[in-house]
Amino acid sequence: MSELLRRYGPGLTLIFVLLTAFWLLMLVILPNITLFEASFRPYLPVTEIGGPRDVYSLNNYAKFLNNAVPASYFGIDVQIPVHLKTFLATVTYSGVVTIVCFLLSYPLAYYLAKVVNPKSLPTLILLLSIPLWVSEALRAFAWYIILTFNGPLNAVLVGLGVLEAPVRWQNGVMTPYDGIMIGLTYTYVLFMLFPIYGAIQSLDRNQIEAAEDLGARWWQIHWRVVLPHSRPGIASGCVMVFMLSAGSLLVPTVLPSTSSNWFTETIRQWMLESQDWNTGAAYSFLYILLCSVVVMVVMWLFRVKLNEIAK
């Protein structure tokens, strides 16, 4: 603060402070507080707002547990609230996306950080980040085109003789969420790559050589030296990819199958289709809370501390 004053004088400093305060208060805190407050009030016709029925309750949150539908987990058939089912699917497949991103990123990050000639590194990083220049929507639609029944993927695979007949990729080959997972992986993989690259980059090459010199095989070097060192990077990459995937609205709407449901779509339906912003807000907060719980539990399982991620 005193540094700001010294550099820019009182006038400019005041403007900086006011702008920051405006941004925080008006654009971040106020809307969220408004939504948070609204989430506890019932959805009422305009005439009844402020009337006797407009009281605070947890009813909007409780809707999450309505409407049991049949589902099957690990071969066991159960009755489960439909929105809970959507939530579980979203979290599960976001988790799968996170794992796939990690499996793709780790070897690539290691290669970039420790194997590749440092001279060609800037070019490679530039090439890798080209997809980031294209808007997320365009990328998702590109995959829509690639995956369509008459699209290039089928054409190539059938042409090469890998497939006998074209496949309906968008209906999902393994799960109804295949298309969404492909889209999310493609969209968010760099958010995994860069933190892991940064972490491995900071590992002293002598550590790797020392391990090898002491007799470690390549996988032991990774398991005992490189992976532990890059844990903070892996953790922040995983949290980012998971939260971004779980919060993505665009990819699930562009690349859905007939039976896929992403939780963000449920929230959107409440807000835009039912015009019930109160329940939509309740679902949003519940969603953030539950996703955070999932992240915390996983972090606890892997004994990762918050301050490690912040590094």
Binding site: A210, L214, A216, R224
Partner: peptide, 26 residues
Amino acid sequence: TALIFQNLALFPLMSVADNIAFGLSV
């Protein structure tokens, strides 16, 4: 051969005993 590096290259995330036993445990 065993090489002792100029900067030693001890493994900072392991205890002293784990450092010493690294070559044995692998």
